[in-house]
Design a protein around this nucleic acid. Sequence first.
DNA 1: CAATCTTTGTGCACGCGTTCACAAAGACAT
DNA 2: ATGTCTTTGTGAACGCGTGCACAAAGATTG
Lengths: 216, 216
Amino acid sequence: MPTVSSEELAAAAGVNSAKLRKDFSYLGSYGTRGVGYDVEYLVYQISRELGLTQDWPVVIVGIGNLGAALANYGGFASRGFRVAALIDADPAMAGRPVAGIPVQHTDELESIIRDNGVSIGVIATPAGAAQQVCDRLVAAGVTSILNFAPTVLSVPDGVDVRKVDLSIELQILAFHEQRKAGEEAAADTAAVPAAPRKQSATDQGPDGDVPAVMPA
Amino acid sequence: MPTVSSEELAAAAGVNSAKLRKDFSYLGSYGTRGVGYDVEYLVYQISRELGLTQDWPVVIVGIGNLGAALANYGGFASRGFRVAALIDADPAMAGRPVAGIPVQHTDELESIIRDNGVSIGVIATPAGAAQQVCDRLVAAGVTSILNFAPTVLSVPDGVDVRKVDLSIELQILAFHEQRKAGEEAAADTAAVPAAPRKQSATDQGPDGDVPAVMPA
DNA sequence: CAATCTTTGTGCACGCGTTCACAAAGACAT
DNA sequence: ATGTCTTTGTGAACGCGTGCACAAAGATTG
């Protein structure tokens, strides 16, 4: 029986072994003292807790470049997600297969959701269409939405929305890049608004540590 | 002069006003007591601290669906990012414009990086090509990499890598969805590995609060 | 100019999460 | 079976971040 100790796992993940054990203990007492954790059993228990052992039918609405990329993305199937349907508002797209799945027209959105028992929807439409699509998804019974459109969606209570902004990660990289470069960078060309009046003692440009407002 | 108070901002963002003021204080003393923060000045200071006032040339490598989606993404330009070049290994792609930018062949990767002073690279290639592309980017002088390929990249010290896994957000939604549904869900069909031996008192399936291992 | 009122900036205390440290559990050797 | 050795599971302490509460600052009014 292949096993791992919390110490090994912690070293591999770069975290504290005690924290790892405490986290595992929330799932139950699956380890064996003096031996460690049975790998296969542990993997199954974590998978189950995370919902990876269930089959989640999802629909992707908006089959542009991004929607097509998502449909082709291999990581979904391996984590229990099944693309139940691809939906697009363009009639010219209807019937055309993307990633082996025929695109269906928006008119059929409601019936697709109901027939497949879909509870998770992915929105990859232009910003302008996102809220409307969102409303229809929710009305048809979807309770979780992954939003790639650059809009804040408003939904009723009980519906979860997660927004993915593809430029945020880039922004974080740029933030660190800026600090790597030090403050040798030339003053930038953008107009600098005048300070409101006073000359604060601490008003001396970026310096010191990473501000708490920035994600790590 | 239009101003905002920390109270107004905190209410809008749904956070504590004291924390917001403390965060702002890391950037310097930009508020005026009795009045609030000068909006224009505050926006500029935050933008500068986050690196939004600089111009960041980036290259996108791998112009498939995802690469094309990124090239077309409007959010980049508005945040100081400029797509300096699109690069693909397929000779058939070379010269073809995507989002108004001609695709260039991988052979030119090094010269593109050097000529444009690119320090941030985006990898949207298949998993198999990612590490090789990464190595070439780093050798050419790139020090920050945004990786959309489903692989863990290894890089020398001093190079930042951020990995974007499009299915992680979906997984988080599924996790919450599972909890919404309660434990009424039928036992799933996957084979359940036998418990190693003992019958633990706490081994009674998911229950209680959200485990600390799960992101919020 | 003095008094008042608003809002910032921050010291301090509280609470939560991480880490330490160890007793209990169980495997394994003798 | 008894003892030793490894590793878990967790109580307790520590440290950090959040939020409270207030003094200081400055605008505004009479």
